[in-house]
Design a binder for these strands. Structure first.
Lengths: 200, 200
DNA sequence: GAGGCTAATGACACCGGGTGCCACCGGGCA
DNA sequence: TGCCCGGTGGCACCCGGTGTCATTAGCCTC
């Protein structure tokens, strides 16, 4: 595997990050996360192993894209939401909206999430990234319910809505033709209603 | 760090596993998970590094005790529960019961969970162990609601109740004097009622 | 235009978790 | 006594991740 487009040292390195992400996603999808070494990813992207770890803190981080921006957008959506809507409904709505991707982005999202939720090493790592989401949600719930972000209910809302969202993603991945939003709405509906179908 | 009680090779190795667990827990609590090498743990327990990895698949597994038995007990509790009780309530009750520890075991449990939920590497790893719990719960819910264990609702119940239980653990760890069962019951009450306090 | 600063890169050495392999040791058994 | 067997330790190796240093190119200043 040699580089398609080699970059010289000292250059602004335009698009290098995106190129590495593509190489990583391709290789991981093709052969499995653990079966691919960081050396191979770096090689395929035309950079050195050392440089790979300057773009991504860990091997796992190469599959997440700009997740920090994703979390920031969720934070903004929560902050700019309708203050008259109930807290829990606001959280769910923000989750649905932040995950309302353009059709063209769906294949990439699918590839990412499939890796994250099926590869054990990536699933483990996801806990650390999703914790960023939890903090944002807990802070929002705390702010609207006059509680501390470390109290039980804010944490509880954050943890359970995130669990519901993740489960919706799994259902979406399992059904190639379905819409992510549908699964998210259904999951949140079940959650907020206390699972009405399970009263027996 | 030298071994208190060295064992000869070829011996039945009685209590070695427990001794390694204690050494690991002590060192991790004292200096932090990442700051302790497996070499040091093995040394403190009087075995070689190579043998450490025969008792535990990973460094992280040394803090979990016999978690497989814990999951098995949850499975049994679910299977032997009152079939007239609603499904969701049964799951919550089983969670409460399986976590009803004797007072003498609480300090050890606290030490374990504090490490697991505070140390990033262990928190990430926890996702893999907790997934075992999720499978058991999802299978139970599926069995009682005429659905497949891979359907949305069984997975959803498993993921959200587990998230609630984990959050209850966090609350318990944050309050030295509180009872774990209280937090669990409160968390499940909020969850099953759809967070009634957040209607504004 | 020469020199100096900066940022990105790559080579190298090193650490630590995890694994495969093999030699060794002790006990049980024919 | 000779054999097998299971727990063990030593060793070499792979791979993810990090610290250090030299190199390179662009840019800014004089």
């Amino acid at each position: 595997m040699t580089a398609i487009e080699t970059t010289a040292p000292g250059l602004p390195a335009e698009g290098t990050r995106a190129r590495v992400e593509r190489a990583a996603l391709d290789l991981f999808t093709l052969r499995g996360f653990e079966q691919v070494t960081t050396d191979e990813v770096a090689d395929a992207a035309g950079i050195s192993r050392r440089t790979f770890f300057r773009y991504f803190a860990t091997k796992a981080d190469a599959v997440w894209g700009d997740f920090t921006a994703h979390v920031a957008r969720l934070d903004e959506l929560l902050g700019s939401g309708d203050p008259d809507r109930p807290v829990l409904a606001s959280v769910c709505a923000a989750y649905v909206e932040v995950n309302d991707y353009a059709v063209a982005e769906l294949p990439l999202l699918r590839e990412r999430m499939l890796l994250i939720l099926t590869e054990p090493a990536l699933l483990a790592h996801s806990q650390l990234r999703f914790a960023e989401v939890d903090r944002v949600v807990a802070r929002y719930v705390a702010g609207r319910s006059a509680a501390a972000a470390t109290d039980l209910v804010p944490r509880l809302v954050a943890a359970t809505t995130r669990a519901a969202a993740t489960t919706a993603f799994e259902a979406w991945l399992a059904d190639e033709r379905s819409a992510l939003g549908t699964h998210l709405r259904q999951a949140f509906a079940e959650l907020t209603a206390g699972f009405p179908g399970l009263l027996r």
